[in-house]
Design a protein around this nucleic acid. Structure first.
Ligand SMILES: [Mn+2]
Ligand SMILES: [Mn+2]
Ligand SMILES: [Zn+2]
Ligand SMILES: [Zn+2]
Lengths: 152, 152
DNA sequence: AGCGTATTGAGAACTGCTTGCAACTTGTAA
DNA sequence: TTACAAGTTGCAAGCAGTTCTCAATACGCT
């Protein structure tokens, strides 16, 4: 006879992170993070987009919960929040081999490309140090027109 | 006898720029630009702040007109618009000896410092070129805590 | 299984900003 | 000067994105 109790699955990083803090694992939280994990890094989704991707597969999650969950996942450092200043803010999986990248945005069609640059990271550190500030985060946004949008 | 018609004052850059384009000079437009000119460069005001500074001196300007005027002055390159991503957007006088600077923002109290860095400008140009984009503008925002806000 | 507390959904509320429209200015041409 | 077409303003309504309120529900510890 097989014991049911013997199947105690390993808690995910999400679940253990939540429990450390008196917070709870919920299907909604799992679905939001899974969406980002399945879609991979380098994709920048708005709250609305997360919502419609989840509800289009039959799941029911309210938009308010999406916003709450995104905020939580950012605080837990699973996600990164971007202010690309066209429409609402966007969220991406925080990948640890790709941590401090910057964004090139086509202001016409929204196409977004990523790039890394150590001089930029350094410039932020130097500026903070010179003024005695404690650096939290620095981001370079390059607003531009993509090849397709240039001649239109 | 002194002729009244002989006093034709030189049109300001604002006035001539407007007239080139079939637009008109109005007291509201003059007041908004004058406010920025009097206050000097390096100051970053929100639309609400512009509005309350103007109305506090007895002038009557509607907030809608402030927004419309700020947009116009940005298009005419008298002002620069900043998205420092705390609260609303901010505006500053576009000074020609200080054109491409970046911002260090205390996310607690809003204190904002400016700095220049050519590597950053260059990074934006290189990124745009590499992807075949036409660069419009690039801005580095450094989010941090100022000395006063660090230990609180 | 039971219970205290965290979380959710639904909608109201809020913030920053834009727009429609009628009344009012402005620049220009007689 | 005056007349007038076209640009501008103020007000209020509208809008997009996000947060909040609160009753109902789900989680997870014992
Ligand atoms: Mn990215
Ligand atoms: Mn500045
Ligand atoms: Zn494009
Ligand atoms: Zn501060």
């Amino acid at each position: 006879m097989i014991s049911q109790a013997s199947f105690r699955t390993h808690p995910s990083p999400l679940e253990s992170g939540l429990h450390l803090d008196g917070k709870r694992m919920t299907p909604q939280r799992k679905k939001v993070l899974s969406l980002f994990e399945e879609i991979g890094s380098g994709i920048h989704l708005s709250a609305e987009e997360v919502h419609s991707k989840l509800t289009s597969t039959g799941d029911k999650v309210s938009l308010a919960t999406i916003y709450r969950t995104l905020r939580l996942l950012v605080k837990m450092t699973f996600l990164n929040e971007l202010d690309l200043s066209e429409g609402g803010n966007r969220f991406e999986l925080l990948s640890h081999d790709h941590p401090d990248h910057h964004h090139l945005i086509c202001i016409r069609c929204g196409r977004t490309e990523e790039f890394e640059n150590n001089e930029v990271i350094n410039a932020g550190e130097v500026a903070a140090k010179n003024f005695g500030f404690k650096l939290l985060e620095s981001s370079l946004n390059v607003r531009a027109l993509c090849p397709i949008c240039i001649n239109k």
